[in-house]
Simulated assay, not measured.
Amino acid sequence: MARSELESVRAVDGPCVPNCCRVLRLHGRSLPRFSEQREFNKPNDDRALHVVTKCGQAVMEELADIVTAYGPSDEYSFVFKQKSRWLKGRAR
Rank of each mutant, 00 (worst) to 15 (best):
M1D: 06
A2S: 12
R3V: 05
R3T: 08
E5M: 05
L6C: 06
L6G: 04
L6I: 13
E7D: 15
E7R: 10
E7V: 03
E7L: 08
S8P: 00
V9K: 11
R10K: 13
R10W: 09
A11S: 14
A11T: 05
V12N: 11
V12Q: 09
V12G: 10
G14V: 06
G14P: 01
P15W: 09
C16K: 12
C16V: 13
C16T: 10
V17M: 12
P18T: 03
N19Q: 13
N19L: 06
C20D: 11
C21A: 09
V23G: 04
V23P: 04
R25E: 01
R25K: 13
L26A: 14
L26S: 03
H27E: 15
H27R: 11
G28K: 06
R29S: 08
L31Y: 07
L31K: 01
L31P: 01
R33G: 10
S35T: 08
E36G: 14
E36K: 12
R38G: 10
E39C: 07
E39T: 09
F40I: 03
F40D: 02
N41H: 03
N41D: 09
P43Q: 08
D45Q: 08
D45L: 05
D45A: 08
D46H: 10
D46E: 11
A48N: 04
L49T: 03
H50G: 05
V51A: 02
V51C: 04
T53E: 10
T53K: 12
T53H: 07
K54M: 12
C55E: 06
C55S: 05
C55M: 13
V59A: 07
V59K: 02
V59T: 02
M60R: 02
E61H: 08
L63N: 02
L63M: 11
L63Y: 12
A64P: 04
I66V: 14
V67T: 13
T68S: 12
T68Y: 15
A69V: 02
Y70C: 00
Y70Q: 00
Y70K: 00
G71K: 00
P72N: 01
D74I: 01
D74E: 14
E75K: 00
Y76S: 00
Y76D: 00
S77C: 13
S77T: 10
S77K: 02
F78S: 03
V79K: 07
V79C: 11
V79I: 12
K81N: 09
K81T: 14
Q82L: 12
K83L: 02
K83S: 15
K83V: 04
S84C: 06
R85I: 11
R85H: 14
K88W: 07
G89L: 12
G89D: 12
A91R: 14
A91D: 15
A91S: 15
R92I: 07
